[in-house]
Amino acid sequence: MLGPDPHDGPVGTGPGTGVGAPASYAHAPVPVHLLVDRFDEHGPTATLFTEPENGACKHAVRVAFGGELGLPAPFAVAVDTGSFPR
């Protein structure tokens, strides 16, 4: 899934916060899930989850806003997170 995470919300845990979203998409299985989190405890980040298997994503890459995330095929583009709102 590319785009806003429908589970994302205010800081916290549980329903409406995005915390369970990667596992939910892995169960689907959604092959590519980009989670944009302005409220990450370490600062704004974007995390790309791939390779869902048995309800978990085998691979995740996280970058702070300002970095680039390379999306796999069929997208095969780099996402520049420098313009993401903080």
Rank of each mutant, 00 (worst) to 15 (best):
G3Y: 10
S83H: 12
P85L: 13
Y25S: 02
G67F: 06
L35Q: 14
A78F: 09
A23G: 12
P10Q: 09
H27L: 13
G70A: 06
V63I: 02
L71E: 04
G14F: 12
F84S: 13
S24P: 02
L69R: 05
G18A: 03
V77C: 13
T17N: 13
G82D: 03
E51G: 07
G3V: 06
V77S: 11
T81G: 06
G43I: 04
G16T: 07
N54Q: 09
A21M: 01
A21K: 05
L48M: 15
F65R: 05
A60Q: 14
T45L: 00
A78P: 06
G66L: 08
A23C: 04
R86F: 07
R62K: 13
V61C: 02
A28K: 00
F39R: 15
K58T: 14
Y25F: 14
A26E: 00
P74D: 10
C57S: 11
F65V: 03
L34Q: 09
P6L: 01
V36E: 15
A56I: 01
P74A: 06
G20W: 01
L34Y: 06
F75W: 15
A64H: 15
G70W: 10
F49E: 03
E41T: 07
P4Q: 11
L71T: 05
E68A: 06
T47H: 01
V79N: 06
P29G: 04
V11R: 12
R62I: 04
A64R: 15
D5W: 06
R62N: 07
F39V: 15
D5F: 02
P72L: 00
G82K: 09
T45V: 02
T13F: 13
G20V: 08
P44W: 09
P72G: 05
L71W: 01
L69Y: 08
G9W: 05
P44G: 02
G12P: 11
A73G: 14
E68I: 00
M1R: 03
E68R: 14
G70D: 15
F84E: 12
V36F: 14
F75K: 03
D8R: 05
V32A: 05
V30K: 03
A26P: 01
A28G: 08
F49I: 00
A28D: 08
V79K: 07
A60M: 09
P52K: 00
P29F: 11
A78V: 07
E41I: 09
R38H: 13
G16C: 02
L2V: 05
G55C: 04
